[in-house]
Design a protein around this nucleic acid. Sequence first.
DNA 1: CATGAATGAGGCTTCATTCAT
DNA 2: GATGAATGAAGCCTCATTCAT
Lengths: 216, 216, 216, 216
Amino acid sequence: MARKADPKKRIDILAAATKVFAQKGYAAARIIEVAKAAGVGKGTIYEYFRSKEELFFAVFESMMRGMAESMSQTADRLDGPFADRMRALSDQIILSWLDQLDTYALVMEFWSATASSPSRNMFKKLFQQGYRQLRTVVQNLIETAQAANEVSADIDPYKIASAMIGTWDALLLQAWIDSEFDALAVSRSYMDVILRGLMSAVQPSPPLAPLEGEKI
Amino acid sequence: MARKADPKKRIDILAAATKVFAQKGYAAARIIEVAKAAGVGKGTIYEYFRSKEELFFAVFESMMRGMAESMSQTADRLDGPFADRMRALSDQIILSWLDQLDTYALVMEFWSATASSPSRNMFKKLFQQGYRQLRTVVQNLIETAQAANEVSADIDPYKIASAMIGTWDALLLQAWIDSEFDALAVSRSYMDVILRGLMSAVQPSPPLAPLEGEKI
Amino acid sequence: MARKADPKKRIDILAAATKVFAQKGYAAARIIEVAKAAGVGKGTIYEYFRSKEELFFAVFESMMRGMAESMSQTADRLDGPFADRMRALSDQIILSWLDQLDTYALVMEFWSATASSPSRNMFKKLFQQGYRQLRTVVQNLIETAQAANEVSADIDPYKIASAMIGTWDALLLQAWIDSEFDALAVSRSYMDVILRGLMSAVQPSPPLAPLEGEKI
Amino acid sequence: MARKADPKKRIDILAAATKVFAQKGYAAARIIEVAKAAGVGKGTIYEYFRSKEELFFAVFESMMRGMAESMSQTADRLDGPFADRMRALSDQIILSWLDQLDTYALVMEFWSATASSPSRNMFKKLFQQGYRQLRTVVQNLIETAQAANEVSADIDPYKIASAMIGTWDALLLQAWIDSEFDALAVSRSYMDVILRGLMSAVQPSPPLAPLEGEKI
DNA sequence: CATGAATGAGGCTTCATTCAT
DNA sequence: GATGAATGAAGCCTCATTCAT
């Protein structure tokens, strides 16, 4: 028998690719670099992945899967009053991402790299799915809080959840851009304000002039 | 940067490059495409820009400059109570970007394209500068409102401004990814909550357990 | 204006490619070799031909065109009695090909190179066309001779023409394989016999046992 | 050549290789394909043949051996008058080859594949040997006929034999190229003419004009 | 003996850049 | 100044061959 197919090798290559793609970007990443980082020969990469693009896609997929998993685990472990849950979730997201800020670069890579590629749509779907998953967690928290009268009923859980995860994303982006940016501190202040907004009595934006279509 | 005089041609090339880079991404964009789009010969590009990267950088710079300009003009025109100003600003940002969502792709491009480039730092600086500019506008609005007692004094204008522009950014990202995402509606609900939070009495997140370093 | 497109360069590359393909064979031929032989850069090849295969096809096409041309010119110049014409044609074919025996290798290349290629059918057609053209020339000679009663009427001009050009082809093949093989001498002896057969009274193969399907 | 003993496996591989090489051509043939067709592992090929080229050479050799064998068996079985023998031989050659026209492709492969190979000369020799063998059979038939006064004595048996086998080869080539080409019918008409030429009284091509451009 | 996972040399091709016109 | 033909560096990928199991 020949050397048996090492299932660990696929993982190794994936890990190496994640690192190299994150550091160099898709276009600038070299297959040979990935091979070296994985401690295998160039050709071996192609034993496990059909092409550079497929490898890239596999990295993305595994990354998203990892994120989603850790996310739902986190959500399961949350308890206490609504505000506590939200603060804990926020911190968890920020902290776990700050730990692997390099990987964050990949999220951007995935976009540019597939700009004119037919797999762009697959990326789009995986991406939306990731966002949706996270959004659902937050949305559920809000809805539960509304049921418990912790959050005013006139809040649209979907919209607010969308905005909140967007904010986390953006804070991480800023942290990535600017290593001095204190994403955790900002996120905490932000949560204070948001929670206060969510939990206070409703005051629909009443005397506000119509805004539709206006371009100030 | 520019070596030849005709300023109109330089602008034509820049506009063409903006379009091509936004559509194809930096790596996939071809100089010949830019040349065709600009209606000039391939060699002419090099009369105005030393290299593809420099052209790219120029596109980025002009984009940031344009954004900043429109941003400060908008801010100058704002008036009325704090909530109105904020809502108007939010709408303005969202709407003007939605108009040119394609160009938004460039923001991501700028990152990935320079991942392993020596000009990465220049990009970083320009980017931070753009963010800072926008943040300052929001920060000023908040500070003014605090001075007028419209916003509680315990709010950190810098942090909240950071979070808010991040959220706008992220909503646009989601709109870009998912064409059905209604960024405007979400941003308005979001502003309702945020404003309520900002304008309600302060309730510092007191009984919250310490979070530092914890990984829930 | 840029350097003007040199139409001669295409010819140069084609000539170089003909030489290299003939010497090395399609698979073993290297684009860089062709470039060097043509005195141009590697990339220039791709300015004129989309791919190695296309270049190869162009070589084949130009070769066939050249052959056909020289063939019909030769035929036009033939005169005198039938036997003289045939002998002159035979000699002309053998001699002109012996002059460029290397090129002959290409005829074989064309086959193997396209064995599993989609362009195989194009090659097949060009090839058949070349053969047909040559066959028509011979066929016409025979038919004219039959009309003049120089050749017995029961001869099938198509079949005999097919066999004759086949023989020339095969003699050249042997000459190519074996540099000591005297294709000209053999072809002359062969023509003697053939012409004697064609011009003698008809004696249909009468008392011959049926051969159909038999496998001796 | 062979390094391992099992002679059956060697033959299996050889048969598989013959098929694959004939279908795909040498360059396009893949060792893995041969292995699959032979029902063995890739590595096993290398137990029996040192390299792809050696395998190819072995295929060629076995093919030539097979041809030569069948050829001499055929010749031994021939009897009757000269014309009958020749017609029977011709039919035998054409029919047996038409049966395996695919394999015919290999003959061409052998050439192109070794164009720039050091084994080219070995191929050349094997090839010449095959041709010579066949030629000898025909030559002997003619010489025997001359001794029996069936064929005029001024015929050069070597030359005519060379031309005849060449013609058969070429007819098969045409059949290979053009599936509608009726090689058997053409070969029979051709034999009629040739035999008539061979068996008629000698009329040396006497009053033939000198051949312009001739390079004797 | 047999296998097929691993390897890396080397090919084709692309495309930013140069420079003669 | 403008052009685009020419260039060649460099990348992805293939596939014959090796060798641990």
